[in-house]
Design a protein around this nucleic acid. Sequence first.
DNA 1: GATGAATGAGCTTTCATTCAT
DNA 2: CATGAATGAAAGCTCATTCAT
Lengths: 197, 197, 197, 197
Amino acid sequence: MADVAQRATRAKRADAQRNEVVLLEAAAALFVECGVDVPVRRIAEKAGVGTGTIYRHFPNRSDLVIAVYRHQVEDCAEAGPRLLGSAESPYAALVEWVDLFVDFLVTKHGLASAMRNDGKGYEGPHAYFIDRLEPVCGDLLAAAKESGEVLVDIEAYSLMLGVGNLCAYSGGDDRYEARILVGVLIAGLQVQPRLAP
Amino acid sequence: MADVAQRATRAKRADAQRNEVVLLEAAAALFVECGVDVPVRRIAEKAGVGTGTIYRHFPNRSDLVIAVYRHQVEDCAEAGPRLLGSAESPYAALVEWVDLFVDFLVTKHGLASAMRNDGKGYEGPHAYFIDRLEPVCGDLLAAAKESGEVLVDIEAYSLMLGVGNLCAYSGGDDRYEARILVGVLIAGLQVQPRLAP
Amino acid sequence: MADVAQRATRAKRADAQRNEVVLLEAAAALFVECGVDVPVRRIAEKAGVGTGTIYRHFPNRSDLVIAVYRHQVEDCAEAGPRLLGSAESPYAALVEWVDLFVDFLVTKHGLASAMRNDGKGYEGPHAYFIDRLEPVCGDLLAAAKESGEVLVDIEAYSLMLGVGNLCAYSGGDDRYEARILVGVLIAGLQVQPRLAP
Amino acid sequence: MADVAQRATRAKRADAQRNEVVLLEAAAALFVECGVDVPVRRIAEKAGVGTGTIYRHFPNRSDLVIAVYRHQVEDCAEAGPRLLGSAESPYAALVEWVDLFVDFLVTKHGLASAMRNDGKGYEGPHAYFIDRLEPVCGDLLAAAKESGEVLVDIEAYSLMLGVGNLCAYSGGDDRYEARILVGVLIAGLQVQPRLAP
DNA sequence: GATGAATGAGCTTTCATTCAT
DNA sequence: CATGAATGAAAGCTCATTCAT
């Protein structure tokens, strides 16, 4: 009997989880297509569910946004220490990590545009991304500074947001070469900066 | 009587132009303070006019946004050729121009965020900025490449949007060092790029 | 096998009844705490069951509301005849019965607010309370009129609703002295009414 | 020219004021018919305007509710001192005032139901009514106590809410004799109260 | 030409009710 | 039978845009 109950529970959970996945994918797709401000109703339509279902899974709009990107951010965060161990130099590790970071930002789900603080509005996603990834990037950057490969004195926070900004909205614009720009930016870290600008 | 009519017309034109200026200044100020999404009504209030007046001058919200920045863009466009003539090298001219560009983007009126295409939304400002400034930046970049100071093969379009992106939303975030990042990016142009990323 | 089935049925019935009791108690508690408009889901949570279970037992919200108070109303109905037999006069019986009635209305479960017809909405509780209690109160009132203690010509229906109204919403308001007002009202029954108002 | 401008202004104001009146009447009618919880949209429909118009005139639902009753409450408040001067005794003035009060509550616009605090919800109307009318009723009651006509020690607050409660929801129910009940209640003020209840 | 009242589609969010599990 | 996920119709409220004055 306990078994039956458990099976029932499992069945429900499986169904609900499937729905959550469908929802997250629909949201992700629409975030890429229309930006994070896309109405909840459209997400619901795309996912083929009622709006209430979204609010059952995610109490707020912003909770949904966070959830959409959480997994990818997690992967990216875990890659940092691993690369620091395996790459031939700290700077090389940084380059590889940024490359991975850009992969997430550009090719997957338009994460980049969610990294910014929209003025007074969504503190949520921004805060989450930063909290999770800043230490990771900070460790890589510190190591590369210590090894003398990076000459510029810049905060991990700025670097990450910079990369994020460079990748923002690159989806629909074929003439904009986000990846090359990031390459140039990271290359610039090796150059002694001028005093002025 | 024709004279009187003309005088009236002239008077009105003067009045209307004054109104347009007031409006643009109010809008500019609010764009900085609250972002481009600030309600039309608040702009009208700040300008001391009715909302209808705004729509008489600018058929759309986006037309207003364009108009707000048009003047600044013009200044920036005119600076390009001048700097190419006066600076000690093409790359130096490029650096100075970008510095000026960043001045507009960052310190003045939050132009940066208006440079992007918001998905299906505002094509307007984006198109205008690019049309006007891409040739200017392109000339500077070509000269610097020819002089051998710039080793990276990058389009002016990408570079401009890159700088614009780096400066985006830098208003409310004290930890984000837009200007340093731009410096790093421009410095990176001098470095032979790696093949891979 | 029939025996087993019966036992199962019995067991389930016992279970279902237990569930119904739990539900009614949870609902009663929440009605007091938050008013009759408390969401069904919260009642379900408080009772530790699913919302579906509530709808199995009570097809409608209003059916639940009725059920919650049915028992108390029954007690109150049974007290009428008893008091008429035991009190020293019909008016004294009426006073005691109203006192008991107020007990239910005020101190127990906020019954009062369920006694009114909410416009087009809940006919349910209202109808039930009236059907059950009006005859009881009517008998007491008639007896007190006959004994000459009550001089006002008023219907039991009005008197009951009047008392109910005086007790309505008295829960959250410390300055509102429902019981005193009821005392004044019942005292007023003994006074020869003016013609006019 | 100033005259023209003024005339234009006046015209607008006249129009807007007319609309406000239409709105208030529609709201009043619906409050009576369906209670104060009637949706804003339905009020807008009844008034033949868009919902936005309501929010232009009244920033909140509760502001509308207050506005609907403000005028009537004002009339009622002003009647208090006048009656105290003209009636033959303080108690007679109280009776007349309560009669007037009931007129407003019952015959006009279902004010009564707006006098209660709906639990956590609308503090607004309740507070306004009380603030305005409690002193008025308090003066009448105090005078009647002093003249020895009223023997019950009751607060004006309770008395007003009691009368309000007795009149609540009396609209749709022909069997409920609110006015008689109020008469009984006020008569009861003259009777020495029993100790117990 | 200027005004700002009016409009109404659209937003996020809640909740009674249904129904697959 | 119990469950609670799903539903979707409202709800209050905002704001770009129109239009009578």
